[in-house]
Computed example of a mutant assay.
Amino acid sequence: MTIEFVQGDITTQEVDAVVNAANSGLLGGGGVDGAIHRAGGPDILRECEELRRTRFPDGLPTGRAVATTAGRLPARWVIHTVGPVYAKREDRSALLASAYRESLRVADELGARTVAFPAVSAGIYGWPLDDAARIAVTTVRDTPSQVQTARFVLFSAEILRAFEGV
């Protein structure tokens, strides 16, 4: 698998699947989640609402992933994953790694060969940037997958440098 790092807007990536750093409610929010829902349009929300009605009435569990249409995005699918909120007193790194592994598993089920990832949990969820980057890159690199290109699409130069430094 080739791993790429770019600074940019994940909603403009021409890939098979875009990973959404979603909240467990799957109904949109701030950051990457809000941007994907706004750019992708109402089709994504409709599928998320259906997932909440059927498969995940209590929300998508932390560390899990599920796919929907990408609506108006240039990608075919959105893979929604819920990263953990950072906690100093509890090691939740296995849950963060699981969010990336589960996203790759869903990508494989879809037949996606190119996947764009954000920095899951590194924004409002408060995960320290260098640690978030280390967990993300090593997990994606070390997880067996049919994905050919994993592209980390990072919002700022600071986040880009952290990911490139792994």
Rank of each mutant, 00 (worst) to 15 (best):
L45N: 07
L45W: 06
L45V: 12
L45P: 06
R46Q: 15
R46H: 13
R46F: 14
E47I: 09
E47F: 07
C48A: 12
E49K: 04
E49L: 02
E49P: 00
E50I: 12
E50W: 12
E50L: 12
E50N: 14
L51T: 12
L51C: 10
R52Q: 12
R52W: 07
R52F: 10
R53H: 09
R53N: 12
T54P: 09
T54Q: 11
T54M: 10
R55N: 08
R55G: 09
R55E: 08
F56L: 06
F56M: 07
F56E: 09
P57K: 11
D58T: 12
D58V: 10
G59T: 02
G59N: 04
L60F: 05
P61N: 03
T62W: 02
T62L: 01
G63L: 11
R64S: 11
R64Q: 13
R64D: 13
A67Y: 09
A67F: 10
T68P: 02
T68Y: 03
T68E: 00
T68D: 02
T68L: 02
T69K: 05
T69D: 06
A70G: 12
A70M: 08
G71C: 00
G71D: 00
G71R: 00
R72M: 15
R72E: 15
R72H: 15
L73Y: 01
L73I: 08
L73W: 01
L73Q: 03
L73H: 04
A75K: 04
R76Y: 04
R76W: 03
R76G: 05
R76I: 06
W77P: 04
W77G: 01
V78T: 07
V78H: 04
V78S: 06
V78I: 04
I79T: 11
T81F: 05
T81S: 09
V82A: 06
V82Q: 06
G83V: 08
P84V: 13
V85R: 05
V85E: 01
V85I: 08
V85P: 04
A87C: 13
A87V: 12
A87D: 13
K88H: 13
K88Y: 13
R89K: 13
R89E: 15
R89Q: 15
R89D: 15
E90M: 06
D91R: 13
D91Q: 10
L95Y: 13
L95A: 15
L96H: 00
A97T: 05
S98F: 01
S98Y: 03
S98E: 04
